[in-house]
Measured scan of single mutants.
Amino acid sequence: MTSCHIAEEHIQKVAIFGGTHGNELTGVFLVKHWLENGAEIQRTGLEVKPFITNPRAVKKCTRYIDCDLNRIFDLENLGKKMSEDLPYEVRRAQEINHLFGPKDSEDSYDIIFDLHNTTSNMGCTLILEDSRNNFLIQMFHYIKTSLAPLPCYVYLIEHPSLKYATTRSIAKYPVGIEVGPQPQGVLRADILDQMRKMIKHALDFIHHFNEGKEFPPCAIEVYKIIEKVDYPRDENGEIAAIIHPNLQDQDWKPLHPGDPMFLTLDGKTIPLGGDCTVYPVFVNEAAYYEKKEAFAKTTKLTLNAKSIRCCLH
Results as ranks from 00 to 15, higher is better:
residue 230 D to N: 12
residue 194 Q to P: 08
residue 185 G to C: 09
residue 145 T to C: 07
residue 13 K to M: 04
residue 165 A to G: 13
residue 161 S to D: 09
residue 15 A to Y: 02
residue 114 D to M: 04
residue 135 F to K: 00
residue 23 N to S: 09
residue 88 Y to W: 14
residue 118 T to Q: 02
residue 157 I to V: 10
residue 44 T to E: 11
residue 7 A to P: 07
residue 122 M to F: 02
residue 248 Q to I: 13
residue 202 A to V: 03
residue 138 Q to A: 03
residue 160 P to E: 10
residue 105 S to H: 08
residue 257 P to R: 04
residue 166 T to V: 09
residue 13 K to L: 04
residue 37 N to H: 11
residue 301 L to M: 09
residue 186 V to M: 11
residue 203 L to S: 00
residue 14 V to T: 04
residue 141 H to F: 04
residue 142 Y to F: 09
residue 79 G to I: 15
residue 295 F to K: 00
residue 30 L to P: 00
residue 163 K to C: 13
residue 164 Y to F: 12
residue 299 T to P: 00
residue 125 T to E: 01
residue 160 P to W: 09
residue 299 T to R: 13
residue 97 N to P: 06
residue 238 E to C: 08
residue 229 V to N: 01
residue 167 T to I: 06
residue 225 I to D: 10
residue 25 L to E: 04
residue 93 A to T: 06
residue 260 P to V: 03
residue 164 Y to E: 12
residue 50 P to K: 00
residue 117 N to H: 00
residue 123 G to E: 03
residue 269 T to M: 15
residue 147 L to A: 05
residue 264 T to W: 04
residue 128 L to A: 03
residue 104 D to I: 07
residue 110 D to Y: 00
residue 133 N to S: 12
residue 40 E to M: 03
residue 37 N to P: 00
residue 7 A to Q: 08
residue 127 I to N: 04
residue 201 H to T: 09
residue 74 D to R: 06
residue 259 D to F: 04
residue 207 H to N: 14
residue 123 G to N: 05
residue 24 E to T: 02
residue 281 V to K: 02
residue 308 I to V: 14
residue 198 M to Y: 00
residue 173 Y to R: 15
residue 171 A to W: 03
residue 156 L to I: 06
residue 312 L to R: 14
residue 90 V to Q: 10
residue 195 M to L: 04
residue 120 S to F: 01
residue 226 I to M: 12
residue 263 L to S: 07
residue 5 H to L: 12
residue 266 D to P: 04
residue 46 L to W: 05
residue 53 T to A: 15
residue 169 S to E: 06
residue 163 K to V: 09
residue 200 K to S: 09
residue 236 N to Y: 13
residue 307 S to P: 11
residue 15 A to P: 01
residue 113 F to N: 02
residue 89 E to G: 06
residue 115 L to D: 02
residue 16 I to N: 00
residue 184 Q to F: 13
residue 35 L to C: 06
residue 126 L to K: 00
residue 109 Y to N: 04
residue 298 T to E: 01
residue 255 L to S: 03
residue 55 P to C: 08
residue 244 H to P: 01
residue 133 N to T: 04
residue 120 S to V: 02
residue 115 L to Y: 02
residue 173 Y to H: 12
residue 16 I to R: 02
residue 255 L to C: 15
residue 93 A to C: 10
residue 100 F to G: 08
residue 223 Y to H: 15
residue 75 L to K: 08
residue 148 A to R: 11
residue 9 E to S: 12
residue 276 C to H: 07
residue 62 T to K: 14
residue 289 Y to W: 11
residue 267 G to L: 05
residue 42 Q to I: 13
residue 105 S to W: 12
residue 280 P to M: 02
residue 92 R to N: 06
residue 46 L to T: 07
residue 176 G to N: 08
residue 73 F to C: 10
residue 281 V to R: 01
residue 254 P to C: 09
residue 27 G to K: 01
residue 201 H to F: 10
residue 278 V to K: 03
residue 39 A to H: 15
residue 288 Y to T: 14
residue 136 L to N: 04
residue 26 T to F: 01
residue 273 G to N: 10
residue 6 I to C: 12
residue 88 Y to P: 07
residue 234 D to H: 09
residue 59 K to R: 12
residue 301 L to G: 06
residue 210 N to G: 04
residue 123 G to P: 00
residue 161 S to K: 11
residue 88 Y to H: 12
residue 239 I to F: 06
residue 283 V to C: 12
residue 213 K to A: 13
residue 299 T to I: 14
residue 135 F to S: 01
residue 59 K to W: 07
residue 306 K to E: 14
residue 193 D to R: 06
residue 191 I to T: 05
residue 2 T to W: 15
residue 41 I to G: 03
residue 273 G to S: 09
residue 90 V to W: 11
residue 312 L to Y: 12
residue 153 Y to M: 12
residue 270 I to P: 02
residue 47 E to A: 07
residue 51 F to Q: 05
residue 239 I to L: 10
residue 219 A to M: 09
residue 282 F to C: 13
residue 109 Y to E: 02
residue 203 L to I: 08
residue 183 P to D: 02
residue 299 T to K: 10
residue 273 G to Q: 13
residue 6 I to K: 09
residue 290 E to G: 15
residue 190 D to H: 06
residue 173 Y to V: 11
residue 3 S to V: 10
residue 222 V to F: 01
residue 197 K to G: 11
residue 288 Y to S: 13
residue 37 N to M: 09
residue 296 A to C: 06
residue 283 V to D: 01
residue 23 N to I: 00
residue 223 Y to F: 10
residue 62 T to W: 06
residue 208 H to I: 13
residue 281 V to N: 04
residue 154 V to N: 01
residue 299 T to G: 08
residue 4 C to P: 14
residue 144 K to R: 14
residue 260 P to F: 04
residue 246 N to P: 01
residue 3 S to I: 09
residue 46 L to H: 03
residue 216 P to K: 15
residue 66 D to T: 12
residue 90 V to L: 09
residue 185 G to N: 15
residue 241 A to T: 04
residue 203 L to V: 04
residue 96 I to T: 08
residue 308 I to A: 04
residue 152 C to R: 00
residue 89 E to K: 04
residue 52 I to L: 14
residue 156 L to F: 11
residue 78 L to R: 10
residue 250 Q to L: 06
residue 255 L to N: 02
residue 292 K to C: 08
residue 18 G to V: 03
residue 282 F to M: 13
residue 79 G to M: 10
residue 76 E to Q: 11
residue 158 E to L: 01
residue 300 K to Q: 08
residue 88 Y to S: 09
residue 70 N to G: 08
residue 266 D to M: 06
residue 176 G to S: 11
residue 284 N to K: 02
residue 185 G to T: 04
residue 238 E to M: 12
residue 313 H to L: 11
residue 306 K to A: 14
residue 53 T to L: 05
residue 170 I to M: 14
residue 121 N to Y: 04
residue 207 H to G: 07
residue 63 R to T: 08
residue 282 F to P: 03
residue 134 N to D: 09
residue 307 S to H: 10
residue 159 H to V: 14
residue 99 L to I: 12
residue 48 V to P: 07
residue 164 Y to H: 12
residue 161 S to I: 15
residue 43 R to Q: 05
residue 224 K to N: 08
residue 112 I to S: 05
residue 125 T to F: 09
residue 130 D to F: 03
residue 235 E to D: 07
residue 96 I to C: 09
residue 158 E to V: 03
residue 223 Y to R: 00
residue 309 R to W: 07
residue 107 D to M: 15
residue 208 H to C: 14
residue 287 A to V: 09
residue 289 Y to S: 14
residue 47 E to R: 09
residue 131 S to H: 09
residue 298 T to V: 04
residue 25 L to N: 06
residue 32 K to G: 10
residue 108 S to L: 08
residue 95 E to D: 15
residue 144 K to H: 05
residue 46 L to P: 02
residue 217 P to Q: 08
residue 309 R to G: 07
residue 275 D to I: 06
residue 135 F to A: 00
residue 89 E to S: 05
residue 220 I to D: 01
residue 124 C to V: 10
residue 239 I to V: 10
residue 142 Y to H: 07
residue 171 A to F: 04
residue 47 E to C: 06
residue 245 P to T: 04
residue 201 H to E: 06
residue 13 K to G: 03
residue 234 D to S: 07
residue 4 C to R: 12
residue 75 L to N: 12
residue 115 L to E: 01
residue 307 S to C: 15
residue 236 N to D: 11
residue 245 P to A: 04
residue 99 L to Y: 11
residue 162 L to T: 13
residue 225 I to C: 06
residue 93 A to W: 13
residue 4 C to I: 14
residue 127 I to D: 01
residue 233 R to I: 14
residue 132 R to Y: 11
residue 77 N to H: 09
residue 104 D to G: 13
residue 119 T to S: 07
residue 237 G to C: 05
residue 176 G to A: 11
residue 235 E to F: 13
residue 60 K to L: 12
residue 178 E to M: 06
residue 6 I to L: 15
residue 172 K to P: 09
residue 114 D to R: 04
residue 251 D to R: 02
residue 245 P to N: 04
residue 274 G to Y: 03
residue 94 Q to F: 14
residue 121 N to I: 02
residue 300 K to G: 03
residue 305 A to K: 00
residue 72 I to S: 10
residue 256 H to S: 13
residue 67 C to M: 14
residue 137 I to L: 08
residue 27 G to F: 02
residue 131 S to P: 13
residue 294 A to Q: 00
residue 46 L to V: 10
residue 77 N to G: 11
residue 106 E to Y: 09
residue 81 K to E: 14
residue 111 I to Q: 02
residue 175 V to Q: 02
residue 190 D to R: 03
residue 277 T to Q: 09
residue 295 F to C: 04
residue 92 R to P: 06
residue 218 C to R: 03
residue 196 R to C: 03
residue 75 L to I: 15
residue 219 A to V: 08
residue 126 L to D: 00
residue 13 K to H: 10
residue 37 N to L: 09
residue 118 T to A: 12
residue 152 C to H: 00
residue 102 P to I: 06
residue 174 P to E: 08
residue 248 Q to T: 06
residue 116 H to M: 14
residue 112 I to L: 13
residue 211 E to M: 14
residue 288 Y to D: 14
residue 23 N to W: 00
residue 28 V to W: 12
residue 89 E to M: 04
residue 160 P to H: 07
residue 53 T to R: 05
residue 304 N to L: 15
residue 58 V to W: 06
residue 23 N to E: 05
residue 140 F to T: 05
residue 138 Q to Y: 02
residue 49 K to F: 06
residue 182 Q to G: 01
residue 4 C to M: 13
residue 267 G to F: 06
residue 291 K to W: 06
residue 259 D to R: 04
residue 255 L to I: 13
residue 14 V to L: 04
residue 288 Y to C: 14
residue 265 L to I: 14
residue 158 E to D: 09
residue 204 D to K: 00
residue 45 G to C: 07
residue 156 L to C: 07
residue 142 Y to T: 00
residue 62 T to R: 11
residue 272 L to P: 00
residue 250 Q to Y: 07
residue 139 M to P: 00
residue 66 D to S: 09
residue 127 I to S: 05
residue 289 Y to V: 12
residue 210 N to C: 07
residue 104 D to E: 12
residue 101 G to H: 08
residue 272 L to Y: 10
residue 313 H to S: 07
residue 214 E to C: 14
residue 74 D to T: 10
residue 152 C to V: 06
residue 138 Q to M: 00
residue 56 R to E: 10
residue 17 F to T: 06
residue 306 K to M: 06
residue 204 D to Y: 00
residue 194 Q to A: 08
